[in-house]
């Protein structure tokens, strides 16, 4: 009845494989369809708002090429503000990838870390921990840009 595992030497009431099968069977699965629909709607909403802001800048007479940057800045600011007010995580629990993929997700991860580690000081806390979550985005973004740059230079 007692399963003895040779690898870690402990007696075990059930087979580990039985536990992993149980987990696969009984664990609630993420509601993939519902998550995908809400990510699509929220992501679409973020993009729609982005387009409206962009149109606003264009109507103020800004050229198309310059109007993108202040639009992105506004969304970074909004996401950072919502993170600071403590509502972004509640939105993200529903919206998921809809707010994580746009620049709002990047802004949230930076701001959340900056707030979290403020108590360890401005330099060693906020400044040094700020990009701990968002860092991979920058690293792989730069690496990808470099590789694509090389490829386009060769072609």
């Amino acid at each position: 009845m007692i399963y003895s595992s040779p690898d870690k030497g402990a007696h075990f009431l059930v087979d580990r494989r039985w536990v992993s099968e149980w987990t696969g069977f009984k664990h609630p699965r993420p509601p993939v369809f519902k998550n995908a629909v809400s990510a699509f709607l929220f992501g679409g909403l973020v993009c729609l708002l982005g387009q409206l802001v962009l149109e606003l800048f264009l109507s103020l007479g800004m050229p198309q090429q310059q109007a993108g940057n202040p639009t992105v800045a506004i969304f970074i600011f909004a996401a950072a503000l919502l993170t600071g007010l403590g509502v972004f995580d509640s939105i993200a629990q529903v919206a998921g990838a809809g707010v994580a993929i746009p620049v709002t997700g990047f802004a949230n991860s930076v701001t959340a870390m900056a707030i979290e580690f403020r108590r360890e000081g401005l330099v060693q806390g906020t400044a040094s921990k700020m990009f701990a979550l968002a860092g991979p985005v920058i690293v792989f973004g730069v690496v990808t840009a470099f590789v694509i740059g090389i490829i386009s230079a060769i072609l």
Binding site: D89, I91, A100, G105, M113, I115
Partner: peptide, 9 residues
């Protein structure tokens, strides 16, 4: 971090 937005399983 507490304010990081992610979906808990």
């Amino acid at each position: 971090p507490t304010e990081y937005g992610h979906q808990n399983p």
